[in-house]
Write a protein that binds this DNA or RNA. Sequence first.
DNA 1: TTGAAAGCGCTAACAG
DNA 2: CTGTTAGCGCTTTCAA
Lengths: 344, 344
Amino acid sequence: MERTRVTIEDVAAAAGVSVATVSRALRGLPNVAMSTRAHISAVASDLHYVADPMATRLATGRSRTIGCVVPLLGGWYFAQVVAGVEAVCAEAGFDLIVQSAGSAERLSDLANDAPTLQRRVDGLVMVDYALTDDNVAAFRTAGIEVVSVGAATGGFCTVGIDDAAVGEMAAQHLIELGHARIGLIGSTRTEPFRFAVPELRASGFRIALANAGIDHDPHLFADGNFSVGGGAEAMTSLLAMSSPPTAVFALSDEMAFGARRAAERAGLDIPGDISLLGVDDHELAALFDLTTVAQDPSAVGVSAARQLIARVDSEHNDDVHVVDRVVLPTRLVERGTTGPVHSA
Amino acid sequence: MERTRVTIEDVAAAAGVSVATVSRALRGLPNVAMSTRAHISAVASDLHYVADPMATRLATGRSRTIGCVVPLLGGWYFAQVVAGVEAVCAEAGFDLIVQSAGSAERLSDLANDAPTLQRRVDGLVMVDYALTDDNVAAFRTAGIEVVSVGAATGGFCTVGIDDAAVGEMAAQHLIELGHARIGLIGSTRTEPFRFAVPELRASGFRIALANAGIDHDPHLFADGNFSVGGGAEAMTSLLAMSSPPTAVFALSDEMAFGARRAAERAGLDIPGDISLLGVDDHELAALFDLTTVAQDPSAVGVSAARQLIARVDSEHNDDVHVVDRVVLPTRLVERGTTGPVHSA
DNA sequence: TTGAAAGCGCTAACAG
DNA sequence: CTGTTAGCGCTTTCAA
């Protein structure tokens, strides 16, 4: 068990060359004789030499680390995204720092910390945030590369799905089944996360209805706060209406789970009495036999991380087509919670 | 927008003192005149000076970063643990690096990387791993502080729950309801995660049965692989027995969800025909009205992170009682899936 | 193709 | 109480 670190100087001495040559040789830089390179490599592995990351980082100014900021660790969606980001980092040899910022204040703290952040990470994946101009300016002047996940913000590269299309697909499916009175379970919260998402999905949904000549009763909306419990409450309030909907579109599967339970508790048959449709294809959606518009959040994380790493690391420049916006596919997964409208 | 970093030298020059004094003053070290300290602080914040983390890390050899290694990012349990760890890191001013290692090979890769890992993190939280002697040796000789989550391994500080007690509580509850033929849905996988957990829970369960004078039919076991689908299959096979159980204990809520669905599909009433009990108190357990033995994985993460940080950072030495083993509470949450046995 | 030497920005003895 | 001076370990001109 060696007690002292073996440094580049040790290798240089043992190989009978200068540290500069060792540095070049080991990093595969040009202008090193084949023989010297081989010799140095041998000596280095012999000594179990590995370059000290901190020294390298200080000298180069790059950390081979990216950060991923999410509103909430531990939620299904965010956990999937982070998993995707991590997978890419692991394969690219990057470290991944995760931070959660669940409020606009915490987000600003982070932005104010941009100067030191810049030294700790080469870039940031910001998941589902609405960045203020100040936030954006802070990251920009600190020189931190940012890729955003979700709706576009701050003029950064954005990867996500087409949320309006999600709403359209949902509406379309329900319309085809003959539904006209369709309830919507969404959210009116805009701080700090998923800000534009509910509105985008809802608007796509409304547009599709309008295109079909159906005018949507704005009262058929209930706030489910993107939670299971909220979904249940929302469904309950929808069912309490004098003229309840024949179908309900929940903007997330978790809200749909709650909604389903509430409907069952109310003695309703699904889809006999009321159809239900969610978004996500959560891992438990199949179990609930929930029809849903599927997305793949881990693929979003993968794509975002690739875009980011391609921008900050010249070695990975060509791993991916660097673009300003990548839109990942969604698709309707028909299961058992939607069916033809029951004519009264 | 300043283009060049402001260094400690700039501050020293502007304040008319030496860099050493600036360093001491800003870090709150003793032996600095009150007046000088105040002056330096003023100048520093005036210049928006912040110490470069990388330079500090190289000079001190400490990174104020901890790592968290999990078998699988994106699973409910692990996401909760990571969330707890992150919360503590954020409040202690530590960065958190997350890595997933889903196989024994990836785990060994990580251990082999211990020398550079040691420079990048001050310590590691290893979640639900069975560390080999080689792994342990690698971390030890690299001087990486480790706290393990789950069952004890490698002689490191361990934080977790009493899994045997979990099994006992479950058995006890079912016994009190009069059940004697109780099925067990568990897992026989041991690599690389949750290794000892299923066995510990199962053994506690069996011991409680034995103490109650019930001899447990070993055929009443089915492998659910800790997944929803696996739980469903396991339940199906249990129900296919010539003499099926009157109650089933699933070693995790997710398996219980699947089991519940399978039972319902088979036309059985819960708890009328068969009782069902899980472990975790997953966020969706209430929705399924599932009786379960609750644990709080994010609290586990919090506790583990505190133990680790107290060990690696003298400033946080007293934040927590440093011990070798912390056991967090679990409790039975009675809901609607368990009921008295139906005498035939 | 290789080496010498000047950083990168901070900390930590050691003097004074 | 404060300043001087070596490092920390690697990268990167600039010469040779």
